[in-house]
Computed example of a mutant assay.
Amino acid sequence: MNQNLCVAHRGFSGRAPENTLAAIHKAMELPFVTWMEIDVQLTKDGIPVVIHDYTLDRTTNGHGKVKDMIYSHIRRLDAGSWKSRDFRGERIPALEEVLELCRGRLKLNIELKNAGNLYPGIERKVSEMLAACGMKDEVVLTSFDTGTLDRIGEADPSVQRGLIFDSRWGDPAGRVRALGCTFLSISFSRLTPGLARFLSGRGVGIMAWTVNKAKEMRRLADMHSDIMICTNRPDVWGETFLEA
């Protein structure tokens, strides 16, 4: 069996509305999906919710910024109809219910969408939630923001942390080392064989995103067996590596 793990990007987002329970359930239907990537922000009243954009406009029938809305309002929004009428009434899930659903079934890469200090306290809140549900060993918390990564380490040094990197320039391996991270989430177009070998040799996990074509999946698999392939289309992963 192929060693390059399949990571469902925001759930099975190619078939269901991203970051919803419907997308998660569809990912879970595929036995080869072992990881999932989701995005977390805080409501105005401090509830961690699973949504990618800083605003509600693209993926719900609501408008405005996530940070300005209380949880009870966000829960009333339709987060499915934009994808298909079949998903009408799908809700934005709370992180807590996603953790309960995935515990023991899927490992999670949780991106904290915290630009600067947009969501004060999100690092501690999420870390405490992971501890409460016994999922610290099943999760890596990732962010583009180095301050967020530092605060995760301060909140709970035992939680695995990962840098997200999507720059044409810079030294991702050096930044991972300087931050004390053990995971790199990187745009697949930025990943090179040398970087993959270097990181793997030092025990750093590598996730390449977002890879939806069989050709690119094969290229990454040929590059290194430790590269996790994050995709909107886990079905294509299955067709590429299990049916070949």
Rank of each mutant, 00 (worst) to 15 (best):
D226R: 14
A115E: 11
I206C: 10
S185D: 14
D171T: 02
R10S: 02
R91V: 10
L30Q: 14
I51W: 00
H52V: 00
H25K: 15
I92G: 00
R15E: 14
T20N: 08
I70N: 15
V159E: 12
I164V: 15
N61Q: 07
I206G: 04
K83F: 15
E138I: 06
G134P: 15
L149R: 00
N109F: 08
L101P: 00
S158G: 09
P48S: 09
N109S: 12
F144Y: 14
G147N: 13
N2Y: 08
L106S: 03
T60A: 08
V126I: 15
K113D: 02
T55P: 04
G14N: 13
G62V: 13
V40P: 06
E154N: 01
K107E: 12
D137W: 08
T55R: 11
D137V: 07
T55V: 13
E239M: 13
A214C: 05
A208F: 03
A94Y: 05
R76W: 04
V126G: 04
D53T: 08
A22M: 06
P172Y: 06
D235A: 09
G134S: 14
L42E: 00
G14V: 12
E97R: 12
V176G: 04
N114L: 03
N61Y: 07
C230V: 07
E90S: 15
K215H: 03
T43R: 02
I38C: 09
V50T: 05
A16H: 13
P31H: 05
E216I: 00
R177L: 01
W169K: 08
P120E: 14
A208L: 06
E243P: 06
K67Y: 00
P17T: 12
K215R: 12
R15T: 08
R85G: 13
I152V: 14
L95Q: 03
K213M: 07
P17L: 12
T240W: 05
R91Q: 10
T146D: 09
D53C: 07
V126T: 11
L118Y: 09
T55I: 07
E90K: 08
A131M: 13
A131W: 06
S143W: 10
G205I: 00
S143Q: 05
P93C: 15
L220C: 11
C230Q: 09
M223Y: 06
L220E: 10
P48Q: 10
E154I: 09
T43G: 02
V7F: 10
L108H: 03
P31W: 07
V98P: 01
R218A: 01
G46T: 06
K136R: 15
S200R: 11
A214I: 04
T210A: 14
